[in-house]
Amino acid sequence: MGRGRLLYVPFWAAYAFLYLPIAVLVVMSFNSGDSAYTLDGFSLKWYGELAADERIRDGLVNTLIVATGSTAIATVLGTMLAVGLARHTRSKTLDAVALMPAVLPDLVLAIGLLVFYGVIQLTLGLYSVVLAHGLFAMAFVAAVVRTRLAGADTSLEEASRDLGAGPVATFMRITLPQLVPGIVAGALLAFTLSLDEFVIAYFTIGNSEQTLPIVIYSMIRFGVTPKINALAAILLLVSFTAVIAGQRLTRIGESRAQD
């Protein structure tokens, strides 16, 4: 084996370390037995039991509400933040502050939000999680949209202003259409992040309602079952689909910008 091929050994070993547990989880979700660790045969019964579990259904509904609301907030504010930083206020300090929620440990952000909600006397519930997830995902949306802005043609904006169009008309007719692939990619990323985010939701939701990750956490405290594997497999499918769709849209936007 040549030296060039030896370089692929750690590469594939890293991929195996990352994705082999996921593959095992998906396979075990089709287990016909009651054990989460021994494959007795293949069956779809655990997926059927998921649909019949009221607690999981309620958690899924709450998660979709939170993910949809926080995605809307993060997409609008993240896009405005990206445009402001890239076109109007260029500052490395502001760039660092804007991206801080993305790099801060989830635990620190969750405790900070919990303290802030206490100071303003905000009752915890789904809306508090929506606001928290919106803040968390906003930084990721801003980063994705800024990447798209870097490849946008600024000459079109300059021509629009030279022809007498105001800032709002220029943004709506010139800038925004160029940003659509990046905005959609950022929205999909925000939705995926909110869908399986646990720490921030756990600290900011209160005791009356639960999102799906919190439901899963409460279930695995008594042991992992094939039902948990089936639920995790579905979440993986949704997350992978959203991420791949976001990457595809980003590439389409980049190829159109180059053309």
Rank of each mutant, 00 (worst) to 15 (best):
A242Q: 04
Y202S: 11
A23E: 13
L179D: 01
V83Q: 01
L77E: 02
V24S: 08
A67F: 02
E54T: 11
D58H: 05
S194Y: 07
T123L: 14
R173T: 15
D53N: 11
I205T: 00
T225D: 09
S35N: 11
F240R: 06
T147K: 03
F116H: 10
V141A: 01
A51F: 06
A187N: 05
S160Y: 02
L85I: 04
A152H: 02
A132D: 01
D34P: 12
D106A: 15
F116N: 08
A139D: 02
D196P: 01
V66S: 00
H133P: 04
V108T: 12
I252M: 15
L124S: 04
F116Y: 13
V9W: 09
A51S: 09
V130P: 03
S70G: 08
A257T: 08
K227C: 11
D53L: 07
D259H: 07
M100A: 15
T192A: 14
I214D: 00
R173Y: 10
A169M: 07
L6V: 05
R87W: 08
F11M: 15
R90D: 11
T192N: 14
G4C: 07
G33T: 03
M80G: 05
T211R: 00
V9Y: 10
D53C: 04
L236A: 14
M1D: 07
R221F: 04
A139H: 00
V26A: 14
A190L: 12
A110R: 00
W12Q: 13
D259C: 05
Y15L: 15
F42Y: 11
V141S: 00
Q210Y: 06
T79P: 05
R90V: 03
L7I: 08
Q178S: 12
G125L: 02
L77M: 09
I183Y: 04
V66I: 05
G186D: 01
L7A: 14
E158A: 08
A74V: 06
Q210E: 12
Q258C: 08
I174N: 01
L6R: 10
P213L: 06
A16S: 14
A152W: 00
F171E: 04
A16V: 15
P177Q: 09
V24Y: 05
R146T: 02
K45L: 14
P226F: 01
A233K: 02
V97I: 14
I200T: 02
R161I: 04
